[in-house]
Amino acid sequence: MKTEASNTYSRRFFIKSSSAFTTLAFIPNSVKSFFYQVKEKFFVKKQKIPLSVSINNKEYRLDVDTRTTLLDLLRENIGLTGTKKGCDHGQCGACTVHIDGERRLSCLTLTAMIPGKEITTIEGLAKDGKLHPMQEAFIENDGFQCGYCTPGQIMSAVACVQEGHTGSTEEIKEFMSGNLCRCAAYNGITRAIQKVAP
């Protein structure tokens, strides 16, 4: 883990940057915002908390910034890049994971709020080197084109079946509406879910 940022910079750097900030009043806004970003990066005290999280049945002990979303934790801190960042604002569903078996959006989940819960990502679906039936069904039914939304679609689809919302094509479409696919592979996705549904 990195040491606290403010400790790694010399007095000289601090004095130099302080005088730079003093001249800010005479500088246009665009330059100002750049300096504020630099200031936030090096001088604002970040809140780090020690956490232990369980992802795909593996325990991770980490010090994380309180701002870290589960999505960023997975991709940046742990290296599980199967979960995708689409919009990062809860509008596309690409970041869908399971938290205690329920489908949720990792981009709107703070890591600080999930200790004690079991997280499953797309990397955790296959068992003993064998793909999950939903993954097989997506391949067989052309449930994707570019593939970027696919991990989110599959995580959502697995939950959709578990919840029992597969009574009709309309019901599947309604309960998969939180996952957007700009290649519009929707028909393939619906077929894949119907294949797996009881």
């Binding site: 569903g93 489908r103 949720r104 709107l108 959502s156 309960f175 509406s177 939180g178």
Partner: peptide, 9 residues
């Protein structure tokens, strides 16, 4: 309202 993922949260 919303989507199943958001309603779960």
């Amino acid at each position: 309202g919303a989507s199943p993922q958001i309603r779960n949260m």
